[in-house]
Design a protein around this nucleic acid. Structure first.
Lengths: 206, 206
DNA sequence: TAGATTGTTAATCGATTAACAATC
DNA sequence: TAGATTGTTAATCGATTAACAATC
């Protein structure tokens, strides 16, 4: 797709806006404003308007934004007005929690498969999924055309698994292992590491 | 502690540097350079040097940085040369996974207690911990002087639990619920929401 | 010494904010 | 209409990078 040159930091805020809008919709709200949204999120109203203006004109002067309409526009932008198939690698505590979590579907993602290398886990049921042998990772993922993966494997295996995911055609990896991954251009990686987040906060404590 | 005015974005990179340094140490390495570290992390060498220079002079011209020395300096800066007691709220899949995860100790955190409101979980054992009644949250946390919490409760309860954590003296909250939290100044919040991270990546897919 | 790499400065680049005309 | 809020511009603010003297 031909993107104008939108800063990644703007893209990073859109899912936050979307999440907040969806919550407002659940509360039965119809309309909001950049000011209200900004107050909820701790972001300036000007920044929200600026961010959205990169993609079009979604509001009405005097009244603000229709929540349902704006949500749909943001979903379009983020490519989550469709559902993406997702593979989970690692059927431990975290992989299992991800497999059982039922919040992904309404946000653009459908868990399709979960892998492990531990013979005592392979074949086991987690939620509706039978744990697959990681030896078959490439065939299963490439065969199903899955492009998005969540990795929750021990740190020591993470880079190796990432390489195999890339070889299988995965284009986006959410990595729960506490290591940096090196992937080729064209593959996106995001990291979730609770200790990193905690350390970001302890700086300010005493 | 009296902080010079260090940008939060710099603080946010320090845990990443630290994690990478610790990995190098495990690999038996003694010395590194801003260039090597930058290549591993996808960050420019200049930026790493600039970030570190905010806090002191930790390297040697010509040779680079002693890994053990620099790690210790960063731990000092981030306040994780001590261990912080941590409370987990929510004994579901995620709370349980956090309680069982054994990587926190070596990174500055010691899980001390886990709470739930479900009578069938209260009193249950998770790892070494007995699940405590969330009704006693304030006494337990304030009594133990815990300042750091990880919240893995349903979205609908998240703000309420956060308010109670603040009242109990918690100063840093790592929030796994997919909602924005409003907390008073002086309390830090970080969010972990896998769907947000995935949506940040799907923008670039097609 | 020669080579390498730091710490730092100045220049560049990019992101945020303030302000307001347009307009619902 | 009067009031409110957008989209956008220009100004400000902050972060990143390039470059290099200092020096190990």
């Amino acid at each position: 797709m031909a993107h104008k040159n939108i800063p990644d930091i703007v893209i990073g805020r859109l899912p936050i806006y979307l999440r907040s809008l969806q919550r407002m919709a659940q509360e039965g709200r119809q309309v909001t404003s950049s000011q209200e949204l900004g107050e909820r999120l701790g972001i300036s109203a000007a920044q929200i308007r600026k961010d959205l203006s990169q993609f079009g004109e979604f509001g009405k002067q005097g009244t603000g934004y229709n929540i349902e309409f704006l949500s749909n526009k943001i979903r379009d932008i983020l490519n989550v007005n469709r559902n993406w198939d997702v593979a989970i690698i690692g059927a431990g505590d975290i992989g299992g929690a991800l497999a059982r979590y039922n919040g992904f579907n309404q946000r653009g993602f459908t868990i399709k498969m979960i892998f492990d290398n531990n013979p005592s886990k392979i074949g086991m049921k987690i939620d509706n999924f039978t744990v697959l042998d990681i030896a078959n990772l490439k065939e299963e993922i490439a065969g199903a055309g899955v492009q998005v993966a969540m990795m929750a494997v021990p740190a020591a295996y993470a880079q190796d698994v990432a390489d195999r995911l890339v070889a299988a055609g995965i284009k986006a990896i959410l990595n729960y292992a506490p290591v940096n991954l090196n992937v080729p251009a064209g593959v996106r990686v995001q990291h979730i590491d609770p200790a990193v987040h905690l350390q970001r906060m302890t700086y300010y404590l005493d």
